[in-house]
Computed example of a mutant assay.
Amino acid sequence: MSEADELFGIAEVSAAIGLEPDTLRYFERQGVVPSPRRDGAGRRQYATADVELIRMLVHLRETGMPLADIAQFTGADGKAADPARLRVELLTAHRRRIHDRREELDRALDVISRKIADFSDRMTSPEDLLERPDCTIAYGVQGEGPLLFLVGAPVGRAGFAALAHELAGRFTVVTHDPRGIGASRAVPGMAAPTPEVLAEDLAALVDRFTGGPALFAGTSGGAVTLLELGKRHPDMVGRAVLHEPPLVSLLEDADLAARAAAAFGVAEADPQRAVQEFFDLSGAAHRTGPDQTPPAPMALPALPAEELDKNRYFLGRMAGPTVFYAPDVEAVRRVPVTLCAGSLSHHQMARRATRALADLLELPLIDMPGNHLGASAEPAEFARALEPLLAPLEP
C-alpha cells in the first residue's frame, strides 16, 4: 500500500492533529468535513488527503473562519459548482478579516505596551524638572554609559519607557515629555510647540547634562526636532538617528498636504474626526511590507475624553508645524545623522518622507523593526537594531 493509500483510525488522526475524537465527530455531524470511509466493522478510516483537509480546517478555525465558510471551503456541503474559485473567494475574504483583526490587535497592543511602559517608568525613573522661561519640562534618567537622548513629539517618557529600559545597560538614557505632553503640561502663555521651540527645549536639557556632544535617537516628530537641533546647535550632536520624520513638506503630493492641513484644522472642534483623518492619511498604525497593498481605511472607535484632549493639542498645535517643517539640507549635512524607517512602513507617509530626505542628503535608508510605532511596540528588537547605529563613525 502506498503512502497515498494509507488509512488512519480516528485515534491516530486525533493524536496527529491535536483534536479530540469527539471534536472530529462533531465537525462531521455539522457537515464541516466530509464523512470518512468506514471499514467492515463501521470504524472511520481517514486517508492522507482527509487528514490534510482536517489539518487545514484547524488552521482556518484557529484564525476565526466561521464554520459555515469552512464547510464550503472543504466542499463538505457538496454545493459548489466551481470549488477552486469558491475556495479562493473564501480565503480572500477571510484574509481581509484577519488583516482587519490584526490592525485592531496592533492598536490594542500599542496601547497596552505604552501603559506598561508608563507604569514601569514611574517605578524605575524618578521625575526631574527643567525650568524653561514659559513652562516646565519633565524628564527622567536611567542607566550608565554614553549619554543618549530619546526624543519624540508627541511621544514622551511613557512612550519611550520600554525602549529606554532596553538601552539602559549600555547608555545613560534621558527621556523627556515635550512641552504640553505628559507631565510637561501646557500652561497659559506657553509658546507653541514648533520644531524650533522644541529644539531649544532639548538644547537646554542637553546643557543640564553636558557641554559636549551627545547621542540622540528621534522618532516621528522627535526626528524633526533633531533636524532643527542640528541646525541650531551642531556641536551638541555626536550622532543622531532619525526614525521616520513625517515631513509632508518633502513630498510632492498636494492632495496629501491638503488632507493633513484639513485634519489639523478641525482638531480643536472635532478631535475624533481629526484623529480619523490623520490615521487614514498617515497609515502609521498599519504594517505593510514592500510588496503588500495598504489596507482599506477603517473606522476608529470613539476615543475617551482624555485622548480627545491630547489630540486637540497634538493635532491642533504640534503636528502641523512638524509635518510642514522644511529642513535646512545644507545644515543637516554638517552633522552626523543616520536615517531609518520601519521595515513594515512601506507606502506610508512618514517612510516616503524619510526616503525623500535620504535622497536629498545622499544617505542610505536603513530598515528598522516594525512600522512607524516600532520603537514603542517592539522595544527589544528596536533597541538591538538601534545600538550599532549609535556607534562612532570609522575615521
Rank of each mutant, 00 (worst) to 15 (best):
T124I: 09
L147I: 05
T92D: 14
A191C: 06
R55Q: 14
L281A: 10
I10L: 07
A192M: 04
K79L: 15
A341G: 15
L91G: 08
V13Y: 04
G230A: 15
I116H: 11
D100Y: 00
L167N: 02
K115D: 14
L229G: 06
P133E: 11
E52Q: 14
P379M: 11
I181L: 06
R355Y: 07
F209A: 04
R61D: 08
R352V: 01
V335A: 06
E268N: 10
A162H: 13
E306G: 00
M318K: 02
D50I: 05
V197Y: 11
A267W: 14
L251M: 10
P126M: 05
A262S: 13
D128S: 15
P245N: 06
L90W: 07
G342T: 03
D121Q: 09
V248S: 13
A267K: 15
G283F: 00
P395I: 09
E20K: 11
M349R: 02
R102D: 08
A358T: 12
T74V: 11
P188L: 04
G140M: 09
A161N: 08
S343N: 05
A117M: 00
R333C: 03
E244T: 00
P83E: 09
V323T: 01
N371Q: 12
A11E: 14
D106F: 06
A183D: 12
T63F: 05
L360P: 03
G143P: 13
I137Q: 08
A16P: 02
E20P: 07
G140F: 09
A192H: 08
G265Q: 03
S14I: 01
A84Q: 14
R114D: 06
E381Q: 13
R312F: 03
L148A: 07
P246Q: 13
M318E: 12
V206Q: 13
T48F: 02
R384V: 15
T48D: 01
F73C: 03
L91E: 02
H99C: 06
E104Y: 07
A391P: 01
A353S: 12
M65S: 02
S282R: 08
R259V: 04
Y46N: 02
S2W: 13
L360I: 08
V88G: 03
G370L: 01
T219E: 14
Q72L: 06
G75K: 00
V323D: 00
L303V: 09
E200G: 07
I10M: 03
A240H: 04
D255I: 12
V58I: 12
M1W: 10
E62D: 15
R37I: 12
A117C: 01
A168S: 15
G212P: 01
T210I: 04
P294W: 08
R157M: 13
L344C: 05
M123N: 05
R351K: 07
G230K: 12
G320R: 10
G180I: 02
L53N: 04
